[in-house]
């Protein structure tokens, strides 16, 4: 696989990234099983080429776009982001991707659009986890339009300078670094611009535990576990925990999106 061409980004953290081995063998991707090691074991069979994405709803140029067309003219950057799972573990991941705003601007967002809805591929014959109704497939996620347009929000197509491995959401996935990991939907086949807040998978399953916003917030606990601290994967047996940062450390960039909102209510 040829390496990708990309430039560095001022949005990258200077923290030491996790190893490729850690990032590619410890995944939540229920389409390939509920165990952390299931995706690396089962995702190899996924066909990612050809790949197309339906972009529809309140856009000027709706249609089914071939992946190459989606990527056309979007400048790739390396974004080394903190990644915080709702299960209270975290990693540092060197994504390669481009700003979602670049794609949305290209397809033309109409004035009535307030939210962006995303869907993951449904292909049970290649995604064995989808053979059980453990989640209501397809996996769905969504962002408010201003969140989607924020420069931190990217569509990632690579990792460590190479094409994205299947278990990490190949060929294209969302990365929203100030939100819990489940918001960063993988293997996207549909992007819809809509007027109303779209239904999202974990919120549909358990609304009291997984909000639509799902911003990383150490002061708002998950009903079952605390969000005050996290374990950094790779910290070692006695690595202990570190304090979780408000908006996962991206407060400066995103806090203004939520000014005046009660984040305990809109969790």
């Amino acid at each position: 696989v040829a390496g990708l061409t990309y430039s560095p980004s001022a949005y990258s953290t200077s923290e030491e990234p996790n190893s490729l081995e850690e990032i590619t063998s410890y995944n939540n991707f229920y389409e390939f099983g509920t165990g952390k090691e299931d995706p690396s074991r089962n995702a190899g069979a996924l066909t990612t080429d050809p790949w197309s994405i339906v972009i529809d709803g309140l856009v000027d140029r709706p249609g089914s776009y071939d992946l190459a067309d989606v990527l056309k003219d979007q400048p790739l950057e390396e974004r080394i982001y903190r990644f915080r799972c709702v299960e209270a573990w975290s990693m540092i991941i060197p994504w390669i991707g481009f700003q979602l705003s670049g794609l949305l601007n290209r397809v033309g967002v109409q004035p009535g659009a307030k939210y962006v809805a995303f869907e993951t591929l449904v292909r049970p014959e290649e995604m064995p986890g989808q053979q059980s109704p453990i989640l209501d497939w397809p996996y769905r996620e969504g962002l408010r339009l201003d969140e989607a347009m924020n420069p931190l929000t990217i569509l990632a197509t690579g990792l460590y300078g190479e094409v994205l491995p299947n278990q990490n959401g190949a060929p294209i996935r969302l990365v929203v670094p100030w939100k819990y990991g489940f918001k960063s939907i993988k293997s996207i086949v549909r992007i819809s611009l809509v007027a109303e807040e779209p239904p999202t998978t974990w919120n549909m399953l358990q609304p009291s535990e997984y909000g639509f916003y799902a911003n990383v917030n150490p002061t708002v606990d998950h009903p079952r576990w605390s969000q005050a601290s996290e374990r950094r994967i790779g910290a070692g047996l006695f690595g202990g925990r570190q304090d979780t940062l408000m908006f996962n450390g991206y407060e400066e960039e995103v806090a203004s999106l939520y000014s005046g909102m009660d984040l305990a209510k809109f969790y």
Partner: peptide
Amino acid sequence: VTLDMGLRWEQMAADLVKRWY
């Protein structure tokens, strides 16, 4: 207590009165 919570006694004590699991 040791590996997962890293001896964060305050957080464990809070969990112990708050979290059903």
